[in-house]
């Protein structure tokens, strides 16, 4: 998955305030990651997939239509989960200084390029 790794590294290096990213399968298996040191890749991947799955499920239950993203806002910043394709979930972590609108746009762009690369 070298091409995914390259996309992620590029993404993290070139987007201010994005501190890490990972691509995982809907089953929670890590495919590629550029996460900050000390973050447990296996656990983060499984939890990300679980969160997205639950997000999709509750979105449906609440009649919110197709899911765009799951957004976690913490004291120290954000965690955002977005589906790239039926086979890939993108996790992005960003500091709280990030501009949300720009972050969402960037996530969309990266998710699309991951989907394209995985075809």
């Amino acid at each position: 998955m070298a091409f995914l790794q390259a996309i992620l590294q590029n993404y993290v290096a070139n987007t201010p305030e994005v501190q890490g990213a990972a691509v995982v399968t809907p089953d929670g298996l890590p495919l590629a990651s550029a996460l900050p040191a000390g973050m447990d890749e296996e656990r983060t991947s499984a939890m990300s997939a679980a969160m997205l799955s639950l997000g999709e499920r509750i979105g449906k239950e609440l009649g919110r239509g197709a899911l765009e993203r799951v957004f976690v806002q913490g004291e120290k910043g954000y965690g955002v989960l977005a589906s790239c394709s039926p086979d890939a979930v993108l996790l992005t972590i960003a500091s709280h200084e990030v501009k949300q609108g720009l972050l969402f746009l960037e996530i969309k762009r990266v998710a699309a390029s991951i989907a394209e690369a995985m075809k």
Binding site: P26, D27, G28, A46, M47, S53, R57
Partner: peptide
């Protein structure tokens, strides 16, 4: 069913959780 998780994901969470 309630979370929409696949069986593989569910098992992975259990394994990770058990490890920790």
């Amino acid at each position: 069913q309630e979370t929409g998780m696949s069986e593989a994901l569910f098992k992975r969470l259990i394994a990770n959780g058990a490890n920790s």
